[in-house]
Computed example of a mutant assay.
Amino acid sequence: MERLSRAAIFAIVGVILFIIVIIKSSVVVEAGQAGVLFRPFSDGIDTENTYGEGFHIIAPWNDMIIYPVRQLSISDKMRVLSVNGLEVSVDGTVWYQPEYDKLPFLHKEKGRNYESEILAPAISAAARSVVGRYTPEQLYSSKRDVIQAEILDEVRKELKTQYVQVNRVLVEDVTLPTKIKEAIERKLRQEQESLEYEFRLAKATKEAERQKIDAEGKAVANKILSASLTDKILTEKGIEATLRLAESPNSKVVVVGSGDSGLPIILGNQ
């Protein structure tokens, strides 16, 4: 009976150990993640393989380090200097993700804190380099898309050999000192008013030119018409007009002599 009890105890212990080994040996990599295998009794990090999503069995003494490999983002507010030495504040967001096939090297050389170790400093350096090329006016108005593209290029250069892929840089806001911002807005308003005045002036000038051309055209036409009208033509036109008036059913015509031009004089017209 005692032997049976000992056997039962050993069996139970064995089952428990087996369960522990199974639990320790099984690893589930969730969606959007990847694993790096660490072998403490062998060659350390397995740099040949990146372990994808799913269920994996590993030796109990090994360790699987899990990393998110889907697109991530990091936002920061940086104080940087413009080309003329004025301090501006830039709010930006960078979208990035680890290079999947290079994940073991990222863990081996940079570690879990690679965002703060290499990504954030690269973003800061790129922002300072790019913003330092522009004046506050350019930063405030028309250069944001260009700045975003240039910061992206700079960050990619910095991280080219760091096993991190940068997908996009978004500059959300550029904050200038209050006095500088007010001066820029005042200048922009003045420029807009100047452009509006120039537009109205150009429009008025074109209208004056149009009226001048129209008047000159009418004057030429009248001159040609006056030169073409003779006394005979005028008399003929007068006779035609008199006949049309006389034929009107609403008229009563009484001809008394003739006028100075030889045309009849019509009286009693109703």
Rank of each mutant, 00 (worst) to 15 (best):
L188S: 04
A221Y: 00
L81H: 09
I58G: 08
I58V: 15
Q192Y: 07
Y96F: 12
Y51I: 10
L245E: 07
E2F: 14
I239F: 12
R128I: 00
E30R: 10
L152W: 02
T50R: 01
F105K: 09
V166L: 05
I65L: 14
R39E: 13
V29G: 02
L243K: 06
Q211G: 02
S129W: 01
F10G: 08
V94P: 01
V94A: 04
R6L: 15
Q165H: 09
Q138E: 14
V254D: 08
L81S: 11
A120N: 03
E109A: 09
D145C: 01
L72D: 03
S75A: 09
K206F: 03
D173G: 09
V88K: 00
S82N: 10
S248V: 10
L4N: 13
F18M: 10
G238I: 11
Y163V: 12
E209F: 04
E182S: 12
K157H: 13
A59V: 02
K203G: 07
V155G: 00
N222E: 11
V13R: 03
V171T: 00
Q165L: 12
V256C: 04
S5N: 09
S82M: 06
Q211P: 01
E158C: 02
I45P: 00
E198T: 08
R244G: 03
R210L: 15
K212Y: 09
A7Y: 07
R112H: 13
V88L: 04
A7P: 02
